[in-house]
Write a protein that binds this DNA or RNA. Structure first.
Lengths: 241, 241
DNA sequence: TAGTGGTCTAGACCACTAG
DNA sequence: TAGTGGTCTAGACCACTAG
């Protein structure tokens, strides 16, 4: 089907892997062997092998050969942000407060701050289906004499604005738990006495210095939270970003 | 630092992207331009660009040029299986029952079965920290006169055994929700009356035929469930599998 | 020592884009 | 029509592996 030589070679080798005639840890024929088999130049073979390697099918050991890789089938992917994951759909985000305050012990640890540091604390209520479904609290280090906060708040998505500046040197970490919220949270989301809540915390970290930029906590009503994840298709390996 | 020419070119272009002197949607110099700039052959430039493309930094439009890609910073990765995600650590898995039965409506839909079909239903209790922390129910289509069930059950991980045969043509989907369990589940996990539970359902699907192979439901005590996910490092793009 | 994969060159022809 | 990226060749030298 594909008209590029290297693609038809990739297809042929994939078929052998999927059908099981090549198994994990098996060695492929050598590159010169494959050159003879497919009657193409070395660079064409190497282009095919490079693609198979990128898609996770093979790996190579210099001086020895190319080997079939055992797929890691327990790694899942999903998307998460303020807007796309809640049920029902987000209709409105209401800014409750913006404060500059001393960080709590937890926030100090998360953002690697000292006692004398200050943080910006932004609280927003997220509405969907006519009621409040989530409370979002964003913390970020406060740098005195740099009053950019007001500008940033005009963005619909606050953290996105901060991220834009560092988009290529940023990592985000997410944890998802279920907890019993405290009284204050319960009041803001109209929860019943013993109603559990889904707690998603997110940290953005500058990868070059490993320093945390923002720390956000989402308190999401349990019925509004569904997460769907899937293992990436092999062909999608490179399309993650 | 790297002694390969193409790697030093990759590093140089990455620096320009991370520092911001090349922004998303900007066009790179043409390949012939880069050949002159770095004084290397076209294949070396193309090797560099291929790496940058695999790591998600650039994309190309044939006939036009190579462009900086805007990173998708909302895609997270995590690992999930029976053993690695529970808190405290899994100590024992106890087989409760193996039955062959008519599928419920839900299971029929999930496994794309008909009313006259039968399913194998395996129930296991997962222990950690001295108590039952999760209940796992696995469903898979029953093929009469193919009594491989007993063999499979000798594996510690039942679904892994089924997956092995299809490892290169398999996709898995996971959904995570919080729910109030029914009386039966509550009894098996010693839950209180109104105690919510984390419900993780997993489906394995053959990608070539898009047919479901297994459907599993994990009822996990809420305190035993923590999920940690992170955005992949750009350099890890190809190491997912 | 023979064979392996890794890097790199200098060339060629192609389809496509855009003025 | 000139320029772009995509494919492919035939060669070269290298470090490494394993008998």
């Amino acid at each position: 089907m594909p008209n590029a030589l290297y693609l038809s070679i990739v297809d042929d080798i994939k078929k052998k892997i999927v059908s099981g005639s090549l198994k994990p840890e098996d060695m492929l024929r050598s590159e010169s062997g494959l050159m003879k088999e497919y009657k193409v130049s070395r660079m064409t073979i190497r282009k095919s092998l490079s693609l198979l390697s990128n898609e996770g099918y093979i790996y190579s050991i210099p001086g020895k050969g190319n080997y079939i890789r055992k797929p890691d089938s327990d790694t899942y992917q999903f998307r998460f942000n303020e807007y796309d994951n809640l049920v029902p759909e987000v209709e409105e985000i209401k800014l409750l407060s913006v404060k500059i305050e001393r960080p709590s012990v937890n926030i100090m640890q998360q953002l690697l701050l000292h006692e004398e540091d200050q943080v910006v604390r932004i609280e927003r209520l997220i509405f969907g289906g006519g009621e409040a479904v989530a409370l979002e609290i964003i913390y970020t280090g406060y740098i005195p004499n740099m009053p950019i906060i007001e500008d940033k708040l005009s963005f619909a998505n606050f953290t996105k604005a901060i991220e834009l500046k560092h988009s290529f040197s940023l990592r985000k970490e997410l944890t998802i738990k279920f907890e019993l919220p405290d009284k204050e949270i319960r009041g803001k989301l109209n929860l019943k006495e013993h109603e559990n809540i889904c707690l998603v915390s997110r940290k953005t970290i500058k990868t070059d210095t490993e320093s945390p930029l923002t720390y956000s906590i989402f308190y999401i009503k349990k019925d509004s939270f569904v997460l769907t994840a899937k293992t990436p298709e092999h062909d999608e390996g490179k399309k993650i970003f």
